[in-house]
Design a protein around this nucleic acid. Sequence first.
DNA 1: GTGAAAGCGCTAACAC
DNA 2: GTGTTAGCGCTTTCAC
Lengths: 325, 325
Amino acid sequence: MAEIGRLAGVSQVTVSRALSTPDKVSPETLERIRNAIERTGYVPNAVAGALASSKSRLIAALVPSVTNIVYASVLHAFSEIMWDRGYQIMLSETGLELDREEKAIATHLSRRPDAMLLTGVRHSAGSRRMLHNAGIPVVEIWDVTDTPIDCCVGFSHKEAGRVAADFAVGAGYAHAATITAGDERAICRRDAFAHRYERLTGTKVQAADFAAHATLGLGREGLAQLLDRNLPRGSVIFCSSDQFAQGALVEATARGLCVPQDIAIIGFGDQEFAASTVPALTTVRIDRQILGQTAANALLARFAASPETAMVHDIGFEIVRRQSA
Amino acid sequence: MAEIGRLAGVSQVTVSRALSTPDKVSPETLERIRNAIERTGYVPNAVAGALASSKSRLIAALVPSVTNIVYASVLHAFSEIMWDRGYQIMLSETGLELDREEKAIATHLSRRPDAMLLTGVRHSAGSRRMLHNAGIPVVEIWDVTDTPIDCCVGFSHKEAGRVAADFAVGAGYAHAATITAGDERAICRRDAFAHRYERLTGTKVQAADFAAHATLGLGREGLAQLLDRNLPRGSVIFCSSDQFAQGALVEATARGLCVPQDIAIIGFGDQEFAASTVPALTTVRIDRQILGQTAANALLARFAASPETAMVHDIGFEIVRRQSA
DNA sequence: GTGAAAGCGCTAACAC
DNA sequence: GTGTTAGCGCTTTCAC
């Protein structure tokens, strides 16, 4: 930067100004500086800038997994807005364990990000303490809570399970089952579904649970297990993701069962393929784009220090009724 | 850090050493320093460290899209290794346009990453120049070229298309068609497939092309289009992704066509669901985990300055024959 | 094994 | 509108 200044016949500070606040530099000077930068191929050092200004324009984003489309698409919407505002994303995958998240938080904090995005609302005490000390805006996504660290953008998984049960009962399904992945929030939905369904109908809800993440193959296996345990015809199955739902659909079809007459299926997530399967999937839609955007805007609002911003955004969900239930 | 030193009765430098090279500090001193850190909840400032040492331990990763499982899973494998070695990932999505990539490269370079991961082997002249000036290790993934910027880990898309055509001919399919997304590399595979198939059989290959990214819905539409154009029974369809293949499968089944007897389908990618559809998908497998790991190791090797490391790694691919073709 | 000094490349505060 | 000065919080080098 000093070198650029020399070439342009100005001091180093003026170059700094030309880059950050061009309107505070005279047009002619600016021109000369731009020229020098062009000629030399100079790339400013944002690390030094961050140290001097204690603003990194870096956002740490911690998600359980990038290969899960559900988190990936939120991240996509989130980072698009952030990128447009000049922020960049440092990414880490935390899996589902709290201590891995804690380690990731500590490491990221040492980079002095301007804000942090966390998935879920459960965090270790150590994580909370570090985040508190760091004093940066934090947004927790994919869930809601009365006690957010800072802001929170998500929806109630309990409520989603309940509403799905209400739907199942309202649609007249006299029996129900669940296929659930090994994910805290999925389990919460399953329990809420079963609770509500059992209370309303007095009929026990059967469960096929998997410790792994949801795949089409496991969805098939889930339905197979349920059928082996004599799941009655006319049952509805509440799946913890559309992957499972599609798997159940494939398995049902392979066995010559009609969906939704013999077996009805409810997915979760309303993924891209859900509308195009045969029959099309009835599912719970979460607007992941809105979720990501709202999270980004919440952080941006915090940067602008708007104090009146609501801290918890419940973006809700919606049952999308198609043909599978 | 000076504060920690005060509390531990040593100088600031000793604290620095205790953190980076603990064995160069006496056990008792170390103990007192660790204590002070624990008490205060001190988090080192990696920004200052990066500035002083000009080592950021940050890797910039540029992929077309995180919501595409194919890139996401490579990223996952890549970042897992990098994380274990103490590196963190700055992520950007570049889409498919070269100038967006160039902007992202410039921005990331200002953060002084220790290395950069790029998707594909085509980059703008400006990108190449900046990367060259930066003098950091660069790994290009998902393709191979004779003229890598630095290292390159991928496979030949041309070869993949050709081998798929050989497979189709060898399996006795007398007609062929393609369903292709608007992606440079997918188009390359399509062309190689068509070329080879036409040369071997003398029969023209029909094409359904989409500008958008591959989805199940578009796969259905692709087959529908092909069928409307009187695609003969007994044709094989080479899809640019498993999503398309699954869509074609759904559409064929919905129309009462038998797969592979009436229509045979070849996917691309061997995604998680490919083995579990009915019939299971014949597809081209790319080992995305190996790809990501190889990319990470190539960079790590560059850091260690091993000069004998091969610059281009062709990880190949494999036709996985299941039931759909 | 430990410390003092210098400096990484910027921004902030203040002069002019 | 532009320059001067003083750091930001570390690592590096060299001395002891």
